[in-house]
Structures are given as C-alpha cells and as structure tokens.
C-alpha cells in the first residue's frame, strides 16, 4: 500500500472512529464539515486540478439541494430517488453552463459563472411560491428515511455523511491518477500545449466541470436530506466563495486539502460567530492572506516541503 493510500484511508478511519467518541455538538459539526467537504472536493476538481476558477459553484450545490429538496417536499418518491435526482440536476446544469461558459476563459469565465449562478439564485427567489425564497423550507423528517433508517438521527446522519465523504475522497484520489485526471492538470498548466498533444481540451474541461457539478450537487442534496432544510442563501454568492476559500486554504490541487480547508474555516467561523455578527470578516482576511502569503494552502505547503508526491 502506498503512503498516500495509507494517509487517505487513515483519515477515513479516524473520522469513522470519531463517531463513537465525539461529544454531541462536535459530532454534529463534523457531520456538517464532511458533507460540505464533499462540496469542496467537487470544486477542487474544476479549480484545483483543471484550473477552472469558477465564482458560481453555488448553483450546482443549490441544484442538488433543491433538486432533492423540492421532490421530497412535493412528491412521495422517497429520499434515495430524490437524492439521485439532485445529482442529475447538478450534472445537467453543469453541462448546460459549461457548454456556454467554457467558450470563455480566465476573468470572463469567472464573471460568466458568477452571473449564471446569480440567475439561479434569483430564480429561486422568483419562484418563491414553491421554494419559499430566502426563508427556505424544512424537509419533514418522515421524508428523510432511507431503507427504514432515520437520517435525522445523529448517528445515522454522521455515518451517511462519512460514507459520502469517503466515496468522494477515494473517487478524487482515483481520478487524479487516471489518464483523464492527469490531462486535467495538463490543461491547468498549459492548455495550448495540451491541445497540440492532440487532447480535445474543450471536451475535457466540460467533463471536469460536469464531474465537479455532480459532486457539488451530491453535497447540496445530502445537506438537504441530512439537515432537513433548503434555503436560497445556499445559492447566494457567499456559497460560491466558500468552496474557493476552503480549497485555497486547504491546498488547491490536492486530494486532502478540501477537507482540511473546510474543517479549519468551519471552526474559525463557528468560533468567531460566537463573538460577533461580523464573522465573515475572518473569510475576508483569510482570502487576502492566502492570496498574498500562501497561495498553495496547507496541503500545498506540505507537498512543497515534505512530501513531493502528495496527490
């Protein structure tokens, strides 16, 4: 077994063990961190590995959240099919947005994704009759059952979040060693050269964005089902900035970075929101500080200093 496999399986094992020892408040927090870390993993595939700096990933998270949430609210289809529908919604949206947005690059790509995401956010407000807009809606606990297991119960919720996170983490580890994952990196590093090696970079970027969108939606749909709530704020600009912040902090283009970044930022904001309403100040300071002093993030620094082959 390689060192990196030990590291990532080790993280998964530790998180599993924590289920039995954490006090209730931390137990709930880590379940939330694992769910959101899946979002960061999805974002990292587009941004960290393929170099697609999107400012609109909240639309994919929201596609999952509302895709699953609205079906649970208005139909009796059950949590698992609704979850699958949430993933499909995220993938379809990513495909549609990608076909348009990937005709641009760099700053234009950032603004185009920001605008599409803003349109999705506004659409959620506009169709407030169904979505209940900013206020959002609660998903009844009767709808949050899979195979007779109540996902609203802390133990079940933690383990489902853990399972989802483990799958996403191992998927990313597998993807980045695959030829297609390697080409994503090549596109990030030098797209022109990748084209002249015969790679259809547009199609590959689209593939990367769709994978990223589906994983982001997987996080959003899981959030809706596990925590029983869907609200427009999850589609707002702030929720597009968060995954970027988590990934930058943890280390863009690393497998473990998204989790580290989500964990640290979650606790920073959790602690500071106890002190002040202006807890987003932490996010602002972190963004500036990371840009200036540590563009590689935590795992990126580890890779640079100690562990050259950290995936």
């Amino acid at each position: 077994m390689s060192r990196s496999l030990i590291l990532h399986l080790g993280l998964i094992a530790v998180l599993f063990a924590l289920n039995f020892v954490l006090p209730p408040y931390a137990h709930g927090n880590i379940a939330r961190v694992m769910t959101l870390a899946v979002y960061a993993i999805g974002y990292n595939i587009a941004f960290g590995y393929t170099g697609l700096l999107s400012l609109g990933h909240a639309m994919f998270f929201a596609a999952g959240m509302y895709g699953a949430g609205l079906l649970l609210r208005f139909t009796d289809m059950g949590a698992l099919p609704a979850y699958a529908a949430g993933l499909a919604a995220g993938g379809a949206l990513a495909l549609a947005v990608g076909l348009l947005a990937l005709r641009t690059a760099g700053v234009s790509f950032m603004i185009v994704t920001l605008m599409f995401s803003q349109a999705v956010y506004l659409a959620i407000l506009y169709f407030g009759e169904w979505t209940r807009g900013d206020e959002g809606f609660v998903i009844a606990s009767a709808d949050r059952m899979i195979a007779g297991v109540d996902l609203a119960a802390p133990q079940a919720r933690y383990l489902v979040a853990w399972g989802l996170f483990s799958v996403a983490l191992m998927f990313l580890l597998w993807l980045v060693r695959r030829p297609s994952g390697r080409v994503f990196v090549a596109i990030r590093e030098n797209e022109d050269r990748a084209r002249l090696l015969g790679y259809d970079t547009f199609r590959l970027k689209l593939l990367s964005l769709v994978i990223s969108g589906v994983i982001s939606a997987a996080s959003g749909a899981a959030y809706a089902i596990l925590f029983g709530y869907a609200g427009a704020s999850f589609a707002g600009v702030q929720y597009s900035i968060f995954p970027m912040l988590w990934v930058l902090l943890g280390g863009a283009g690393t497998v473990i970075g998204p989790f580290l970044g989500t964990l640290f930022m979650f606790y920073l904001i959790d602690l500071s929101s106890g002190l002040t309403d202006a807890y987003m100040l932490i996010a602002g300071v972190a963004l500036i500080g990371l840009t200036l002093f540590a563009p590689q993030g935590i795992a990126g620094e580890i890779r640079r200093r100690f562990w050259k082959d950290l995936p």
Partner: peptide, 14 residues
C-alpha cells in the same frame, strides 16, 4: 479577483 473578494468582506464586515 480573489483578493478583492477578500477586501469586499473585510470592508463590509468592518
């Protein structure tokens, strides 16, 4: 863009 997003939050929150 990333840095000015940070600046946005700093100004707004302060």
């Amino acid at each position: 863009i990333v840095a000015t997003i940070g600046l946005l939050y700093v100004i707004q929150q302060v």
